[in-house]
Computed example of a mutant assay.
Amino acid sequence: MQKLKTHYHPEVKNLENKSVFTRLATRSIAIQGNTILLLYTKRYEDYSLPGGGLDVNEDKIEGMKRELNEETGAKNIKNIKPFGIYEEYRPWYKPDFDVQHMISYCYTCDINKELGNTNLEAYETKNGMKAVWVNIHKAIAHNTKIMTTSNKKGLSIERETFLLKRIAEGLK
């Protein structure tokens, strides 16, 4: 799979003498026309691709399907194709490591427009995460505005906005 970008959070100046934790994750790209299935998170006021961490030894495609179903209730997930890898280094919030090295494997797929029940984790519910079909260009504009005007932005908004822009380029 093609690497799309390696991003270093501004707080991660270098990796010298740092303990690094690597986390593998997946991101799902389900598009119908100019409409894309995203998660809106009220806490951070942003849009993100459905996805999350893989379990130990979990197959990437199976993990992608699991995360997509858990977070959005997506049904009939098919035609899964690699889109690219987004790699990032960002501060780790627990005392066991200094830096998190996140590798996100992104896949396009087709799903039913109608979504089923979600199975969100407690923190996702607490953060006000909700699956929504939204115009991709509106989502990009919204995230771009949040990146420049909000003090509530989360660590993933730059990744998500970069990926949304790359996806939108493919729609032209």
Rank of each mutant, 00 (worst) to 15 (best):
E88P: 02
Y93M: 08
R159Y: 15
L54F: 05
K152S: 04
I167C: 05
E71A: 01
K18F: 09
F83W: 12
Q100E: 07
D59Y: 12
R166G: 03
D46I: 15
C109T: 07
K130Q: 15
K172W: 11
P91C: 02
A30R: 02
T26Q: 03
G52K: 05
Y8L: 09
M64A: 15
G51T: 00
Q100C: 12
T144F: 07
N135W: 03
T125K: 03
F97N: 13
I157S: 04
K113N: 12
T6C: 05
E16Y: 15
L54E: 03
N112G: 07
E158Q: 09
S150V: 08
P91Y: 03
Y44R: 04
G154T: 03
T148A: 13
M147V: 10
L68I: 01
R66G: 00
K3I: 09
F83R: 06
I167T: 05
E45L: 03
E88L: 12
R66M: 00
S48L: 05
V20D: 08
Q32M: 15
E67Q: 11
H101F: 06
A74F: 01
V12G: 07
V20R: 06
R66K: 08
N143R: 07
N143H: 11
H137D: 14
Y86Q: 14
I103C: 14
A141W: 07
G63V: 10
L39Y: 03
Y89G: 10
T144G: 11
T149E: 14
V99A: 15
P10C: 04
L163E: 02
S19C: 01
L155D: 14
L54M: 05
V99H: 06
A30N: 02
T149C: 02
L120I: 05
K152D: 13
M102P: 00
I157K: 04
S28M: 06
D98N: 10
T149M: 03
K13D: 10
T35Q: 13
K126P: 00
L49Y: 05
Y107W: 13
E62W: 06
T41I: 03
I36Y: 04
A139W: 13
P95C: 10
V56Q: 15
E45A: 13
N119W: 01
I111Q: 01
V20M: 07
R90W: 11
I61Q: 06
E58Q: 11
H9F: 09
A74M: 02
E158Y: 13
G51W: 00
G53F: 04
I31R: 13
L120M: 02
E67T: 01
I167A: 09
K13I: 05
T22F: 02
L38C: 08
I31S: 12
I103E: 07
R159L: 06
G154C: 14
K5C: 06
I146W: 04
Q2F: 08
N17Y: 09
K153N: 10
L37S: 05
V132W: 00
F162K: 06
F162Q: 08
E87Y: 09
L54H: 08
R90G: 10
K5T: 15
N34E: 07
E124S: 00
K165P: 02
I140Y: 09
N112V: 04
